[in-house]
Design a protein around this nucleic acid. Structure first.
Lengths: 196, 196
DNA sequence: ATAAAACCTTGAACAAGTTTAATAAATAAC
DNA sequence: GTTATTTATTAAACTTGTTCAAGGTTTTAT
């Protein structure tokens, strides 16, 4: 069962008893998502916290010229959500789109708050998870203000080999905040340097 | 009393009864911090979550050339902490330094966890707070990958007039990820444009 | 199997941002 | 109130990254 992957994921943060596992399971819905399918589009409200069982997603904005900017990827065992839209029921500025065919588990806000209120363990798990994501994001921002594109690219490749192997370079460039053309030049330099 | 400012701050998230207020108050310590004094230095462990009652702090790294990069400011009614160091008891790479003479309230990890475990309300408050900080950071990152320095500067000035009035431009430049010299050019352009 | 779409690379011209160095202005310290 | 220190500005030369346009490769859809 796919729910097992989620239960296993929660093991990283909290110990769930049978009652709690059932309370969680019955509040989760499972979906299969095709490549290029959206689970969130601009001007929608983000109604779900999404756990990726398998596959890969990107969350991004599009500016007036149609250029995309990747805020985040999410692959197996990761959560993805426009938290701003989710909590404040605001229309989102973001898109969440499947880069690969995917299977996801989703929980909506009423069910999540039910779990938080009746089983504080879950609030603990989500508090810790968001803290970890905050740390990661802080680190990424720090790199963006302190390092050049080549340094950021090298970090990305080393830190997320699983992503950099699966993603087209256009997507990586968009995540790093550079153009695909410039990433191409960086890669040429890196390869040349490795050679000698 | 300075603790009242903190209690008032928690009002934004949760309703505290007298017992809870006391449990919080007796776990908080108050300090006065001079300008240029550090409350965290590189290679220290960050033992406290710090609430700023009055004054202003910056959190930053220093690279091998001695250049500083500002990750965050914190003024009245804001929290500041190297969460990575705080939770994992890791040596920090960051400095937290007072830009103005300040008064702070601090809570350490054992006391914070005591509150979280015995009064889940507090975990709720901190979960919501970190979510809000996450949203803000996500937005800042998005700007860094999608907008140029002038656009980022204008956003900063409009969104945080309180900070941009109190901070030297060197500090703002470091936050935006540009050199003070280049910020000076941007400001010249903005003024010229406003004029005509 | 073929056509269409997406992706990658290259190069030349350009724009954005940095570096260095020097001077002026503002703030803090005694 | 004067001196020392920090902050702000300017300009020229340089580096990093973008834009545009074109051609080649790979992937996807039918």
């Amino acid at each position: 069962m796919n729910i097992d992957k989620l239960l296993y994921h929660f093991d990283n943060f909290i110990q769930l008893n049978e009652v709690e596992k059932n309370e969680l399971s019955c509040r989760i819905i499972e979906k299969s998502i095709k490549k290029k399918q959206f689970i969130l589009q601009k001007n929608d409200v983000c109604f779900f916290y999404t756990f990726v069982v398998s596959g890969l997603f990107k969350m991004y904005t599009v500016d007036q010229n149609g250029t995309e900017y990747n805020l985040q990827f999410a692959s197996e065992n990761e959560w993805i959500c426009d938290i701003n839209s989710f909590h404040f029921k605001k229309n989102s500025n973001l898109y969440i789109e499947a880069i690969e065919p995917s299977v996801i588990l989703q929980i909506d806000k009423p069910n999540l708050l039910y779990l938080f209120t009746h089983f504080p363990k879950f609030e603990r798990a989500f508090r810790v998870m968001i803290e970890n994501k905050y740390i990661e994001l802080e680190n990424r921002l720090l790199q963006n203000i302190s390092q050049n594109a080549e340094q950021r690219y090298n970090f990305f490749v080393n830190e997320y080999p699983n992503l950099s192997n699966r993603l087209p370079n256009t997507q990586v460039a968009s995540y790093l905040g550079i153009t695909p053309e410039f990433l191409s030049k960086i890669r040429k330099n890196v390869i040349k340097r490795d050679k000698y």
